[in-house]
């Protein structure tokens, strides 16, 4: 029968078990993953199963690395997200965290847009480093994403988005993410995307400041192909800051909504 061994289709004897495959192909492997889940005990195998064998600390070949990186994904996810392109408008607290989550998930192409440079006040919540202060955010993020997952193609737009250039910058994207800071900019992007890119689902966020209870952040459907994450009301303002945990919760709601959309599921 045929199984997938480290993402290569491999012929094995009928009735062969997980440990028999390990003994034959990679006896020194100390991590054995069957269909996305690591197992310590032997297990029977079926046609089409996905087995990944990893020796801890060993540097895999570039051909093998991508498969090994995706070995904890739910089976079937990788092939589908690999073909997808996601647009992220804004590379701040929301956008940088959404980009990291989607890069780790193996989304094929990310289009990121921002006009700003990294500054010290960003580092309390955004996915940048001290040595990147002064670097354009899209460049810094591209660098960080390449270190996380070199198989993700990143297209960066270093400039201001407006109603005139949004459709062009994000042409070809399967899902859009609104990740701006300013309320008027959020409204502008949402209006423009929904008029100019009406077939592309859009995931926006509003209401994620401070440290109010985590479970007040929700994902809901707020219109045709339009999804909104947040508590809907907690604005950043004098006396109410932006904190890594809650911004991160909202960003990961957005990233999970994107993943669900790419896999054909309703996010809300």
């Amino acid at each position: 029968m045929k199984i997938w061994l480290n993402e290569q289709q491999t012929e094995i004897a009928d009735g062969a078990t997980l440990f028999m495959v390990r003994a034959r192909f990679k006896p020194k492997a100390d991590v054995t993953i069957l269909n996305g889940f690591p197992l310590r005990e032997d297990h029977s195998l079926d046609e089409g199963d996905r087995v990944v064998l990893i020796r801890r600390g060993e540097r895999p070949s570039p051909q093998e690395l991508e498969a090994l990186m995706a070995s904890r994904h739910t089976p079937g996810v990788h092939e589908r997200v690999k073909r997808a392109a996601v647009g992220i408008a804004g590379a701040g607290g929301l956008g940088s965290a959404v980009a990291v989550a989607l890069a780790r998930s193996g989304v094929g192409r990310l289009v990121i847009a921002d006009f700003d440079v990294v500054e010290p006040s960003n580092l309390n919540r955004q996915q940048f480093f001290v040595d990147q202060i002064g670097v354009p955010k899209v460049e810094a993020l591209r660098e960080n994403l390449a270190r996380i997952n070199p198989y993700v193609q990143v297209s960066a737009f270093n400039g201001r988005l407006d109603s005139g250039n949004i459709a062009g910058v994000f042409a070809g994207c399967d899902v859009m993410v609104e990740a701006f800071d300013g309320a008027d900019q959020k409204a502008m992007l949402v209006e423009t995307c929904r008029i100019r890119l009406p077939q592309v689902p859009l995931v926006a966020a509003s209401g994620l400041a401070g440290y109010a209870p985590s479970n007040t952040v929700v994902t809901r459907r707020a219109g045709t192909r339009f999804y909104l994450v947040g508590d809907g009301e907690t604005a950043a303002r004098p006396g109410e800051g932006l904190m890594a945990p809650r911004v991160g919760i909202a960003a990961h709601h957005q990233a999970n909504a994107v993943l669900r959309l790419l896999l054909g599921e309703e996010p809300g």
Binding site: G92, L94, G182, A183, D184, V190, A209, A235
Partner: peptide, 29 residues
Amino acid sequence: GAIVSRERFAATLLEEGDTLEIVHFVGGG
């Protein structure tokens, strides 16, 4: 079911039975 652009707000006359979804954004990101 159709998005209304900002520039059409003043000219859009509401009618009996209209269904509106209004999302009001707050800042932060």
